[in-house]
Simulated assay, not measured.
Amino acid sequence: MAFPMIRGCYRLPSTFSLSRLLLKERVVLKGPGNTRPAPSSLAAATTAVRPYSSDQGEQKKHQKVVVVGIPNPFIWFRTRIYYFLIRTYFDREFSIEEFTEGAKQAFSHVSRLLSRCQFESLEGLVAKDLIGKLEEKCNLLPSNYKKALSAEPDEIMYTTPGDVGIFYDDNGRKFVSILMRFWYLTSARLPDDSMEGTRIFQVGVREGQAETKRLLTAIYEFQREFTKGVPPDWIITRIEHSKLLD
């Protein structure tokens, strides 16, 4: 089964360090302490948070999250070479921007299936051997942790490509893998002591009201076989949710 908008062994290290995370307008940092953010591959990005309405005029406003990083020029350039190789030797229509958008949709869909323990629905989307492992872990999670696995599309704050892999197996089959990192908000109630390294925010819903949300991270790796005659489908071969699926 193909993910929407995703077309289509040298491992690249992370390209950037996430140096600052700012939430503008009615998003206020509540908990102290520093995070240990995952690497990012963009110098800066701005993404809309779920809109809220004020009591006066019911005019929708949008909150923003800004991610600022300091790029490593050498790694940035090398990553682009890998994208060029994919377009040249595997898929002429490949676009990392289009892939990123499709990966974001796939992440939201699969995370919701995991949250609901709908493991049969993961077939064709997630590698078979990984589904069994996820089922074992998810069945042991309390309900609030399961809820935190789900990432609604409008709660995804930031999406960025990570490592890129191009490799062949002993039979000459060709594969490309792209690791994606996601930052998303959740309103699930999670114990602070077990979620070290995350930040808690007060998100304005209406004037005079605020909802507590926590910023979580997830890593999903997408792999596609480019051997001639094989369906052009991407499949998820790795899933990690910070502090939830350890």
Rank of each mutant, 00 (worst) to 15 (best):
K24S: 11
L185Q: 11
R181W: 05
P39T: 03
F222Y: 06
Q105W: 05
T198Q: 07
S150M: 01
R206N: 08
L215P: 09
F119E: 04
W234Q: 07
S111M: 09
Y145W: 04
G162K: 11
D55Y: 08
I239L: 08
G197E: 13
C117P: 00
S242K: 15
L23M: 11
A106I: 01
I200S: 14
W234G: 07
L12H: 14
R189N: 06
I200H: 14
F201M: 07
T159N: 10
T15E: 09
E207P: 06
T159L: 11
L130R: 00
E211G: 05
V68Q: 10
W234F: 05
K30H: 09
L22C: 02
S150R: 03
K174D: 02
T79E: 10
T35H: 01
G33S: 01
A48W: 10
Y10S: 09
G31D: 15
V203F: 00
E225S: 14
L190M: 14
G208H: 04
L141I: 03
F201L: 07
R206F: 09
I236D: 06
L29A: 09
H62E: 08
A106R: 04
Y82E: 15
F167V: 03
W76S: 09
L122M: 07
A106F: 04
T237W: 13
E58V: 03
Y83D: 09
P191E: 07
G102C: 05
V49A: 12
D193R: 02
T237N: 13
I178T: 02
E240R: 15
L12R: 15
I166F: 14
I178W: 02
E136F: 10
C9H: 08
F16C: 04
L215N: 13
E155L: 08
V164L: 07
T88A: 13
Y184P: 03
T160L: 06
L18R: 10
T47M: 07
G165F: 12
G172M: 08
I156Y: 07
L85H: 12
R92E: 08
D170E: 04
F77E: 09
A148N: 05
I70L: 12
L22P: 00
V203E: 00
R199L: 08
H62R: 10
F90T: 06
K30T: 11
S40I: 08
S53P: 03
A38F: 06
I131D: 00
P73D: 00
I178D: 01
T35N: 13
I200W: 11
K61I: 06
G197W: 13
F90K: 13
K104L: 12
V205M: 12
E207R: 12
M195N: 15
G33D: 03
A210Q: 15
L245C: 13
